[in-house]
Design a protein around this nucleic acid. Structure first.
Lengths: 168, 168
DNA sequence: TCAAACGGTTTCATCATGCAACCGTTTTGG
DNA sequence: CCAAAACGGTTGCATGATGAAACCGTTTGA
């Protein structure tokens, strides 16, 4: 049978992250949540996503603790989807994707939205540094594998039934 | 007809990035490339990915300028896949994903691989700062939309035939 | 020289996605 | 107060994407 791949057991944190938020829509929903969208219809209109898929993703993101479902403060009855702290901590991922996209996926003169500090309007950027503050590039970084299990990567990804199904 | 979604035209750089590298396998391949893997079989063994899918992704990543196909230096005949500068600039994305995964997707005592500076062994982390060096959190950042087109997001995602097909 | 490994491509079954229709509830408004 | 529209989904179906296995030409190695 064709099973979807899971990287839940991988010892590489990047792989596990991708397992959780690496699908087509999840990060886009998170992006819109950062932009202040909270309601089903808002996400749907913004993304043009099919309603069943949106429904599934909102549920999954909630199950995984990235969104939380709350009743709106202003007495309304429709529920709202808000970022949890765990979800808000995806901010650097969004910034990193944004920065790369700005550099490589826009024509020279083409406009794009910009990320700035709210109070000052200053541009925001992302830096990679050592603990004592020296900047580091990809060529000077290396990944230390988990000692146990000699193989380069601990084991090939597991396969399982459905990567993101409702827990029966 | 059911068409895959494309965000190529979105004015949000994050969305465009996800359009390019947001699928299930691409970033995992890039991660392995950062780890020094270069050959088809190495990626296949490491990821446990089906060969046809790997073949497709390597081709797509090359077409998009993230990998480049080179003949090995040591006289061998089998080709190798190397990161381009564009691909290497995905480093911050990998670090951001790693950092989030480390924090939220591992049990307290559970081991994971670590990213360190090669020469010193110091831990590497990612920081978000303004142009003049002040750190910024998600609550103090805001996205300035592209002025033209009043809508919150310029337009719902286009639909098109195949998001990542070979160019006939 | 023969066999195995490498690097894919093709075929086919199954899963995920997208669309449209439907449905109960909430809001609007006449 | 009642009708109609909007909201927030769920269900069913058609189709595209994925995964497994078979196959194949080339390269390696014994």
């Amino acid at each position: 049978m064709v099973k979807r791949t899971s990287l839940r057991g991988d010892y590489c944190p990047s792989a596990r992250s991708l397992d959780v938020i690496g699908d087509w829509w999840s990060l886009l929903i998170v992006r819109d949540a950062f932009d202040g969208l909270t309601r089903f219809g808002e996400f749907q209109k913004s993304l043009g996503i099919a309603k069943n898929i949106l429904s599934d993703r909102l549920r999954t993101l909630s199950e995984r603790g990235i969104l939380t479902v709350v009743a709106p403060a202003d007495g309304g009855t429709h529920q709202e989807y808000h970022l949890t702290p765990k979800g808000r901590d995806l901010f650097p991922v969004m910034v990193a994707l944004r920065q790369w996209g700005e550099r490589y996926l826009f024509e020279p003169g083409e406009e794009h939205s910009r990320l700035v500090e709210r109070d000052t309007g200053q541009a925001i950027q992302l830096e990679i540094r050592t603990a004592d503050g020296r900047p580091v590039g990809p060529d000077h970084a290396v990944v230390l594998k988990v000692p146990q299990q000699g193989s380069l990567h601990p084991r090939p990804a597991e396969r399982l039934r459905k990567s993101r199904s409702k827990p029966s």
